[in-house]
Design a protein around this nucleic acid. Structure first.
Length: 808
RNA sequence: GCCGAAGUGGUGAAAUUGGCAGACGCGCUGGACUCAAAAUCCAGUGGUAGCGAUACCGUGCGGGUUCAAGUCCCGCCUUCGGCACCA
């Protein structure tokens, strides 16, 4: 078959017939399947895109044939750093390179033959989209979910941008790999922590991979404990957070984070120089370095002490970089007997180590961090750790020195980027009125085109006078715009909503439409987004719900992660390793259906694996076999023979077995086994083809069934064959075959027979035979009865239709 | 260090969730067709022993539970992914 020709033919047909276009009239039967949209890179589509989109498109086509009104939109996550870095390097404007890349990718996506609804296409860098990203920002601001604060942030010296903690990988910038350093800046944050508890709870009801849920759960990192107030000799007060208040008597020092305001205030003259030096050194170290386990714990005594609220003991205050100001209160109580880190620290600085917990029937060498019985804790000795915890906190609450507190590891989402290629933050700064949101009517705040990209540490927007200088919407006085743009994760945190109403120019989306089309029924994308994108999107959904725009709680009901296709060397594909496999040559040589079918057959979808094209010939052979049979079947004469005998029954069994299995496998994204079942079915058809006297009516129907089952996996090919067989219109507008269970009932079944759990024989036994019948069948079998001999049958274990175990 | 996932023939991978390990392929071996090759078709293909029927062994390693374990439990080893002193 001329694959190139039929691909063109059917792609044009689908476009003309609007096969992929969602019809809102049928919204009751909607099935919203979404693949994560892609960043428009210069390198066209890579194999990863294919692996994500092609098998998922087969899933969507399968759903369409099952009678759903499917919605499978596609778009581009078009803002981001690479385009800007490219501009710095080459002078080509991000808008120009991005537009070109999108055009390229659109074309190759078309060539893939996926049934995307292009009428709902989104490009996040277009005004008609980022206008509403800005709207989202203003809404969050209005709701008190966006705020500004000065905070130590990750600063990438190469990208010259602030990165969220979530975007720092092993101390290096996620995108460029440079080591990240620290810098203080006033930044915009989204208050995702307000939703920490619901984001955690909501995981329970989601049809997501367990692994992903656990990752999010750990990311949110809930811990229940207490905040305890310590007073300093100076009278200043500070709080520590602890989950182990029962070890309070064991406190022998306090550690403050270097950024803690009390450090400056309380440090003694004698210690000032050492402390200042230490704080300065810390500011140079990246957070990753500070948190590294292999690094020796260091700290400096600030020359001031605090009073332990439970016993009045004086404990020295240290400053140490392993305590972070951004988590908890930025102050930690040091209990060397109960914590390994504190133990190391105390040993190094000769601080007392007092046991406060005794193990119950277990070794309890110090440091002992397990639960046990309280000791050396006057008034609380003998209590279990849990009782002690409650009693101590209760005692302190009475004095106003403690409160129960739940902490989350999750931090607020830093959204400011000192970059050009993003959605401008819609805020105006006025000397008189402060930070003033841009009025809705003035949206979008347009990203100017004529900017200077020279990498001098100043962002292109900040240098652009025409953009920066404006007037205050409140007082009308001179003011300047916020020079920062939004993290691209903001753009992608709501795109799945916009798709359903992509051309609305009055509002970001019509809630009535959205509430019918959403939530997404199946979301397919890489596991690397488990903690960032997927969490942000959930947060935004919940925030918009609370503003009254949405009536659902979760954006993605069901989630599938495709695996990663590695290079032939088993390593992740990358330019530097030179192991990138491009899909284009395969499409050129074998056709898109062949590549798609191979991706589906050769890998376990959620696992992926190293690329190897040995198996692609198998697919070519398979499709050739289908074609040869199709050419035969299409000219089949009417046969006089119309009986249903054993040959026909066997064919019908194969047919219905295939329907049942393929149906289930497609539903479960188990594409490799679905294709395997199709191959078996084809073998059965060939077998019947070799039969002398054929019932051509049965044969033709069985073959048509085969083509329907194949259609989602090889769409162009199946359309063509369907046309040969006299099919009118698209095969995807026909119904999916339904399994006739009665054809699957066999008169006899082969069961395995074990004697004392060892495989001994196989027997054909009547379907639904009683225990007695089975016993007789075994005893009348020569070989088996010889083996059993005159031994007593103690027990007969029967797994219906599968196995019999005779215990003698 | 913590959390998570995985480890099955020469190879990509299956295994109805505790029930015949290796479906379906690739590769390989032999055969048919052919002057020959390609393509196609047929047969075989986990290992060891045997002419053979067959027997024994076999899902990273070591134990355990069970009539029965790739699957469950305990302890290791290796690989991959995520997180990084979370108090």
């Amino acid at each position: 078959m001329d694959m190139k020709k039929i691909e063109k033919k059917w792609q044009n047909y689908w476009q003309k017939e609007k096969l992929g276009v969602f019809n809102f009239k049928n919204v009751d039967k909607k099935y919203y399947c979404l693949e994560m949209f892609s960043y428009p890179s210069a390198a066209k589509l890579h194999l990863g895109h294919w692996y994500n989109y092609a098998p998922t498109d087969s899933f969507v086509r399968y759903k369409k044939m099952k009678g759903y009104e499917v919605f499978q939109p596609m778009g581009f996550d078009a803002f981001g750093l690479p385009a800007e870095n490219y501009a710095i390097k080459t002078g080509i404007h991000p808008k120009d390179s991005t537009d070109k890349n999108i055009e390229n990718m659109e074309q190759t996506l078309h060539e893939m033959g996926a049934m995307f609804d292009w009428s709902a296409e989104i490009k996040t860098c277009k005004e008609d989209y980022y206008k509403w990203t800005q709207w989202l920002f203003l809404k969050l601001y209005e709701k008190g979910l966006a705020y500004r604060k000065e905070a130590p942030v990750n600063w990438c010296p190469s990208c010259k941008t602030v990165l969220a903690n979530e975007q720092v990988v092993n101390g290096a910038c996620e995108r460029c790999g440079s080591t990240v350093i620290k810098k203080d800046l006033t930044q915009w944050f989204f208050k995702i922590t307000d939703y920490a508890e619901e984001l955690l709870e909501g995981l329970n009801d989601l049809d997501w991979p367990e692994k992903t849920k656990i990752m999010q759960k750990n990311w949110i990192g809930k811990s229940v404990g207490a905040e305890i107030e310590f007073t300093c000799e100076s009278g200043d007060k500070f709080k520590v957070f602890t989950t182990r208040a029962d070890t309070l008597f064991g406190v022998s020092f306090i550690v403050l984070a270097p950024e803690h305001p009390l450090v400056k205030k309380l440090t003694s003259e004698k210690q000032r120089k050492a402390v200042e030096e230490y704080v300065y050194e810390t500011s140079k170290a990246s957070e990753i370095d500070r948190l590294s386990t292999t690094r020796e714990k260091t700290g400096v005594y600030i020359g001031h002490n605090a009073i332990n609220p439970i016993n009045g003991a004086l404990v020295p205050i240290y400053v140490a970089d392993y305590v972070l100001y951004s988590y908890g209160t930025g102050a930690v109580m040091g209990v060397p007997s109960g914590d390994e880190r504190d133990f190391d620290f105390a040993t190094k600085y000769n601080l007392p180590i007092v046991r406060v917990t005794k193990g119950i029937d277990c070794p309890d060498d110090l440091p002992f961090h397990d639960e046990g019985i309280l000791v050396n804790s006057p008034g609380f000795d003998g209590m279990t750790s849990e009782e002690g915890r409650k009693a101590i906190v209760k005692a302190l609450i009475k004095e106003g020195k403690a409160e129960y507190k739940t902490n989350y590891r999750l931090r607020d989402w830093l959204v400011s980027r000192q970059r050009y290629w993003g959605a401008p933050i819609p805020v105006i700064h006025c000397d008189k009125c402060g930070a003033v949101p841009v009025p809705y009517k003035d949206l979008p705040v347009k990203l100017p085109y004529d900017v200077e990209f020279a990498p001098d540490g100043e962002s292109p927007l900040k240098k652009h006078k025409g953009f920066m200088e404006t007037t205050c919407p409140v007082c009308g006085g001179p003011a300047h715009r916020d020079p920062d743009t939004l993290d691209t994760f903001v753009c992608s945190s709501w795109y799945y909503l916009r798709y359903a109403d992509a051309h609305n120019d009055k509002e970001p989306f019509n809630p009535e439409i959205i509430n019918k089309v959403l939530p997404v029924d199946k979301y397919v994308g890489g596991a690397e987004h488990a903690c960032m994108h997927l969490l942000y999107a959930r947060f935004i959904t919940k925030a918009l719900r609370d503003m009254g725009y949405l009536n659902f709680d979760e954006p993605f009901k069901s989630l599938v992660h495709q695996g990663v296709i590695l290079g032939p060397d088993g390593m992740r594909m990358s330019k530097s390793k030179g192991n990138i496999i491009a899909p284009d040559p395969y499409v050129e040589k074998y056709g898109s259906d062949t590549l798609r079918l191979y991706l589906m057959f050769g890998f376990s979808y959620t696992e992926g694996g190293p690329w190897n094209d040995d198996g692609i010939k198998a697919i070519v052979k398979f499709l050739d076999r289908v074609e040869r049979l199709a050419l035969k079947v299409k000219d089949l004469p009417k046969s006089a023979y119309n009986k249903i005998e054993s040959n026909e029954k066997e064919l019908l069994y194969a047919s219905n077995y295939a329907i049942k299995c393929v149906d289930k496998d497609m539903e479960n994204f188990s594409f490799n086994t679905a294709v395997a079942r199709l191959m078996e079915y084809l073998n059965a058809l060939y077998k019947y083809d070799g039969v002398e006297e054929k019932n051509n009516a049965v044969y033709l129907t069985a073959f048509k069934t085969f083509i329907k089952l194949l259609a989602p996996c090889a769409p162009h090919f199946a359309e063509e064959v369907n046309e040969w067989l006299g099919g009118k219109g698209s095969i995807f507008n026909t119904e999916y075959p339904v399994c006739d269970e009665s054809a699957l009932v066999k008169e006899t079944v082969e069961v395995a027979v074990q004697i004392n759990s060892k495989m001994r024989s196989r027997l054909n036994i009547a379907n639904g035979a009683s225990e007695e019948d089975i016993k007789n069948a075994i005893l009348s079998d020569e070989k088996l009865s010889a083996e059993i001999g005159d031994k007593q049958i103690k027990k007969l274990i029967i797994v219906p239709g599968r196995l019999v175990n005779v215990i003698i």
